[in-house]
């Protein structure tokens, strides 16, 4: 008798999650406008080399963390400096491309 109840809860919550994922698919850390605060969505760990993925985790990259792009070289191709938590981290665009973000107008959970 308890199982259907749980499913209902999941059903109610999932549309929001799907929406978040959709938004995340279209916008990554690579394309996030500068100085626009956002939240990290899914990270495609499989696209990253394993030492890179590990370092990214160690630097605090995770779903739901606040993020903001601080600097990006104009010519393209150069690395991106972003604020994650209270740290500034520099990373390359190929890595940034694997990090989905959703800009913040939606209030954080």
């Amino acid at each position: 008798m308890h199982a259907p109840y749980t499913e209902t809860v999941t059903a109610i919550r999932s549309p929001r999650h799907t929406a978040a994922h959709h938004a995340a698919d279209s916008l990554t850390l690579e394309t996030l406008p500068r100085r626009r605060s956002a939240t990290v969505g899914a990270i495609e760990w499989a696209r990253l080399a394993s030492p890179e993925a590990r370092r990214l985790r160690e630097l605090g990259f995770d779903e739901g963390v606040a993020i903001e792009v601080l600097h990006r070289s104009r010519l393209g191709g150069g690395p991106i400096a972003c604020r994650i938590g209270r740290m500034t981290v520099a990373l390359r665009r190929a890595v940034a491309r694997a990090i989905s973000v959703s800009p913040d107008p939606l209030p954080a959970e």
């Binding site: 080399a49 370092r55 400096a81 740290m87 981290v89 520099a90 390359r92």
Partner: peptide
Amino acid sequence: GESSGFMMEM
């Protein structure tokens, strides 16, 4: 080898 990455805390 694979081009190495650049990831650094500033």
